[in-house]
Every structure is written in structure tokens, then in C-alpha cells.
Design a binder for these strands. Structure first.
Length: 548
RNA sequence: GCGCUUGUAGCUCAGUGGAUAGAGCAACCGCCUUCUAAGCGGUCGGUCACAGGUUCGAGUCCUGUCAAGCGCGCCA
């Protein structure tokens, strides 16, 4: 695409790969801009404006058919594209791959959600699920070999507690045990049980029912996993946990004290030593299982990514130092911690707690706002920021919600394409058939009528702005992929929708039976917009409706 | 106490060391004979928590202060 060519020419001149092209703050400056002369003035030992002059001379020599270059103080280069450059860009956006692939594909294993099978998913899990699945989509799209896993913590203390709580309710025992899970959390899972189950039989049944309910909610959220890994059956019963502990012992990284097995983690950089096997019941701690699990993950992938709630921050250091001591390259292992989601209802913050009955579940919010709005709104803010989810705003699925704004733009584009390719009710033939459109999409000159100098200036401006915005799609996806942060992409799609609505209202009317070349040219632009918006929404797993 | 994260418009949030700090919501004013008004255009709104420092240039990087959230279990 022309912008890549331009970027490459500047990079060639400066002998670097570090040149970025950006949209200028103000379109009166030009179509694209770069501060490269400011950045490289020192390296070239000349004033920024002088360097800018030299680059301009180089570019004028090479690319004057496509764009003109202007110099602006204190050292910006602004580029003004000729119609041919816009047409070339648009043609590429209509027929080429939209997302660049990484040159070295690596396998990446993403673990996310991994909620305990002891209750319903809350909003924090929901945020992790949405961010994790979106990142998986984005990383796949940029060429990583992605596998996703959900780790089921079904072998620890919490499961025992779940079993006891369920047993008390099942047998109608009034224990008033404050340690128990709240009855309202367990009760929905006690229906239609055999009457004579033993304690040992009851626990796994309840656990499986809860897990199944979690899976169903995740499906509604469009969240899927390649594998569900059970701590009990995949780590304990296979001997993987045993192997991991043996490996630590052989490397002299453990010791016995107070009847417990300890990891010498303080020697490795942790703030204190950690227990691996508990003294009272001889059972492994969470750390022991987690360590074994991550060792097995390292055998299955080049890189690991975990996405957890901020309340799991405590486990990072111990896990990483132990993995490092066992020879794993922890530079290939990232953990993202997702800040909490609070819920605001009628201007009041609704307190939620993971282990009380007043927990706000993903399911109940989904019922009110739907998967599209839920996903989009949770994706909009950076994971490091606490997020206040305004349920009243999200419930108003009529007009305020940003996701409808973006989807509406898609539906509008579809409507235009439909109207152009199908006969109007009072006509027998359509303005165009799909072959004509296909030929136009493959041709650069076909788009030139949309930038014809005889058109009103406003129409040309909004046409250009839309193309330029489309041009940045790939860059936005790459940034999201590299920074492991999908929020920019959501904001980009809103901006893109704004450009399209603005184009529509300029008005750049597309269907003009008396001006077929102009209609066809604009149809190419609508086609590219629809293609990119659909791809972008697809990465977020938000639907792109053809009609609304 | 120590560690991590955060502090930007009335609210919810964007913002690769670059040009006059942005969007949505809320408030106000306009625009449907015209491909979907779930839309568009405009007005109002800011000491980027505070104080230093680095730099040609800081909302962005560094240090300190203040404030908020989370973490620092033989819970998971």
C-alpha cells in the first residue's frame, strides 16, 4: 500500500526502521504526518528543519506522482496525497489481507478465566473472559499459533468447603456455619438429585453442575476454550504434580520443616519461602498445582500468557521464580492482572464480593444487556483501570450505547450495498450487478471519480478522512497485539464509525443513478468500510448485523 | 510497613516523548421530500492529583508527596 511505500522511503533515507506515520492532529496540516525529522535531528547532527528539507527532496524525487510533502515547524513532515494514492490505498483495502502477519510464528498458550468451580461467574471473571478471548482472536489474526485453556481448580480446600456446604443443605442440616458458601449460591444446583447420595458422591456432582453452568454462561459470552484442564484428573492423577515436586527436590530447591514441604523461594528472589505440601493433610498447596500446570504448559507452547483478576497478584512472584529455577525462560511468560469491575446502579455503587450471596453474576447482567454490549463496554477501558459498569446505561439498549453506534454504521453500509445491487421496488434492474462491483474493486482508476475536483470540497474531505481512518486498521490491530491491550481497537472502531456516519451525512450520497462512475467509486469505499468494520468487530466477537 | 496498579471535562473513559489535550454520556442550539435520524453539525465544559527533575519539546519518562484499589495465608 502507498503509505507503506512512503514509510519505507523515509526509513531508507534515515537508515532506520523507527519511522511512524500518523494522522495529523488537524486535517488542514495534511493527510498523513511524521515527526521523524525531530526524532532524528540529533543522530544526523543537523537542525530538524534542515533534515526535513533533505527528506523532502528525497521523497519529491521518488514519490511525486502520489503525494506532495510539506515541511512544518518545528520539524514535521506533512504529506498531501494525490487522488491516485487514495485510490491505490482503497483498492488494497478492498482486496488484500487486512492484517499483517508476524514473520516468526510462535505458539502461544493463553490461560484465562480459570474460575473456581464453586460458584457463578462474577463481573471480574466476565471482564477476564472478554479480554482473554479478544486477545486470543487478535493474536491469532496477527499470526500467532494460539491455544486457550481454562484451569479447573477442583482439588483444593475450596472444593472440600463446597462439598460440606452442599451436604449440609442436601441433608437439611442447620449448621449456621459461617465458613459455608451461602445457601442461595448452592441451592440452584441441588435440584433433582438422588435421595441417597453419599458425601463422596455429592461433591463431584455439584462441582460438575457448577462447571457446566459456567460453560453455558461463557458460551453466551462467545468465549470458548481449546482445553479445560482439571487439577484433579490432569495433574494429580496423571502424576504430573508428583514429577514437578520431584524435579524441585532433585535441584535441592525444597526442604522439610514443621511436617510440611517448603520451596526455598526466598533464595530465588521471593520475599519468603512457600509451602508446597501442607502438614495437616499432606495435600499440595495451590502453588504446587499451579507450578506443575505451568511446567506442563511450557512443554506445549513457546510462550505463555495468563489473564487473571488483580486478586491473584500474590501468586506471580513465587510461580515465576520457581519456573525460572527449573530452567524455564520466564521472559516468555506474561501475566496480565485485570482490575476489578464495580457495578453502578441508579448512581450507587453495588458492592460485590466473591464469596457472598450478593455477588453480581455475569449471567444476570448478560440477560439485561446482551453479549455484544457486555463485551464491547468491558473492552473499552484498559485492564489496569478499575471499571465502573453502569448497568442503567448498559440496559438502555436503545441509543446511548457505543456498541449500537458501531453496529448501526455496519447496518447502514450493508443497506447501501444491498440497495445498489438489488432493484428498487419500482424498478426491474439494479444499479449495479455484483460482477461490475467486483471489477471496480480490483481497479484503481474506478475510484478516481469519488475524488474528482469538480465535487464539493466537503464531500472530498469526508471521503479522504474515511479512507485515512480505514488505513490505520492494521496498525491498531498490531498495537493491540503487541501491547496485549484490546481497548484501543474498540475505540478505533467507534472513531471509524464516526467517520462513516459523517461521510454518510455530508452527504456523500452513494446511489446516484445519473452518475454511475461516482456511485461505483463510492460503493467501493462503502465496501472497504464494511469489510474492515466486520473484521474488527469479529476480533472483538461482537456481531455485525446486516440490518437493525 | 513493603510491593504492584491507578489519579485527565459534572459522569464513564481514550490518549506511541511531538503541532491548539480528545470521545461518549449529561446540558443547550440546529438538521429527516434525500441510500436506515439507533444518525449528523454546533455550543458549554480542563491548573492532565501536587511539587521538583530529564529534554529542543512532558498528560506521557525519572524522583518525591498526597489519595484510591489490590496484593503480602500450610485459601484458591
Amino acid at each position: 500500500m502507498f503509505n507503506k511505500l512512503l514509510q519505507k522511503e523515509i526509513q531508507n533515507y534515515l537508515q532506520t526502521e523507527q519511522v511512524s506515520l500518523e494522522l495529523p492532529k488537524n486535517f488542514s496540516f495534511g493527510d498523513l504526518a511524521t515527526p521523524a525529522p525531530l526524532n532524528f535531528a540529533k543522530a544526523f547532527k543537523m537542525p530538524p528543519l534542515k533534515l526535513a528539507e533533505n527528506i523532502k527532496t528525497h521523497l519529491d524525487d521518488k514519490l511525486s506522482d502520489f503525494c506532495q510533502t510539506e515541511i512544518a515547524a518545528p520539524g514535521f513532515l506533512n504529506f498531501r496525497f494525490k487522488p491516485l494514492a487514495f485510490a491505490q490505498i482503497l483498492q488494497a483495502l478492498n482486496i488484500q489481507n487486512l492484517i499483517s502477519q508476524t514473520t516468526e510464528p510462535k505458539s502461544l498458550l493463553i490461560e484465562y478465566v480459570s474460575a473456581n468451580p464453586t460458584g457463578d461467574l462474577h463481573l471480574g471473571h466476565g471482564r477476564g473472559a472478554v479480554v482473554g478471548s479478544t486477545l486470543a482472536n487478535i493474536l491469532k489474526a496477527t499470526g500467532r499459533e494460539v491455544k486457550t485453556e481454562f484451569y479447573i481448580n477442583d482439588a483444593g480446600e475450596q472444593i472440600q468447603k463446597l462439598g460440606r456446604s452442599a451436604w449440609n443443605l442436601y441433608k437439611n442440616l442447620n449448621t449456621n456455619n459461617t465458613e459455608d458458601y451461602p445457601p442461595e449460591l448452592i441451592k440452584p444446583y441441588l435440584n433433582d438429585l438422588d435421595e441417597n447420595l453419599s458425601f463422596e458422591e455429592l461433591t463431584p456432582i455439584i462441582k460438575d453442575r457448577i462447571l457446566k453452568a459456567q460453560k453455558q454462561v461463557l458460551e453466551k459470552l462467545k468465549v470458548e476454550f481449546d482445553a479445560w484442564v482439571s487439577e484433579k484428573t490432569d495433574l494429580h492423577e496423571t502424576g504430573l504434580l508428583e514429577q514437578a515436586l520431584e524435579e524441585l527436590k532433585q535441584k535441592n530447591l525444597t526442604y522439610q520443616k514443621d511436617n510440611a514441604l517448603w520451596l526455598k523461594s526466598s533464595e530465588l528472589g521471593d520475599e519468603r519461602d512457600r509451602v508446597l505440601i501442607k502438614s495437616d493433610n499432606n495435600r499440595p498447596t495451590y502453588l504446587a498445582g499451579d507450578l506443575a500446570y505451568h511446567l506442563s504448559k511450557f512443554n506445549r507452547a513457546d510462550e505463555l500468557l495468563d489473564i487473571f483478576g488483580a486478586d491473584h497478584k500474590g501468586q506471580e512472584i513465587s510461580l515465576k521464580v520457581a519456573l525460572k529455577a527449573l530452567g524455564k525462560n520466564i521472559d516468555n511468560f506474561s501475566i496480565l492482572f485485570i482490575q476489578f469491575v464495580s457495578l453502578v446502579e441508579q448512581g450507587q455503587e453495588v458492592k460485590m464480593s466473591k464469596r457472598t450471596g450478593s455477588v453480581i453474576t455475569v449471567e444476570e447482567v448478560l440477560e439485561k444487556v446482551g453479549s455484544d454490549a457486555f463485551r464491547f463496554m468491558l473492552l473499552m477501558s484498559h485492564i489496569n483501570n478499575r471499571l465502573a459498569f453502569d448497568i442503567d446505561l448498559a440496559k438502555r439498549t436503545d441509543e446511548q450505547n457505543p456498541v449500537f453506534y458501531v453496529q448501526y454504521a455496519h447496518a447502514r453500509a450493508c443497506s447501501i450495498l444491498r440497495n445498489a445491487l438489488n432493484p428498487a421496488p419500482d424498478e426491474t434492474t439494479a444499479l449495479f450487478n455484483s460482477e461490475e462491483l467486483q471489477i471496480a474493486l480490483n481497479s484503481i482508476p474506478a475510484f478516481l471519480p469519488a475524488l474528482d475536483a469538480s465535487l464539493p470540497e466537503k464531500e472530498i474531505a469526508s471521503t479522504k478522512e474515511l479512507i485515512l481512518k480505514l488505513l490505520f486498521f492494521d496498525q491498531e490491530v498490531q498495537t493491540a497485539s503487541n501491547k496485549l491491550n484490546p481497548s484501543g481497537l474498540a475505540h478505533y472502531l467507534i472513531d471509524l464509525a464516526t467517520c462513516f456516519h459523517s461521510f454518510y451525512n455530508t452527504p456523500c450520497k452513494v446511489i446516484l443513478p445519473e452518475q454511475k462512475p461516482l456511485s461505483l467509486a463510492r460503493l467501493c469505499l462503502v465496501h472497504a468500510f464494511k469489510r474492515i468494520l466486520q473484521t474488527g468487530l469479529g476480533l472483538l466477537a461482537v456481531s455485525a448485523p446486516e440490518r437493525m
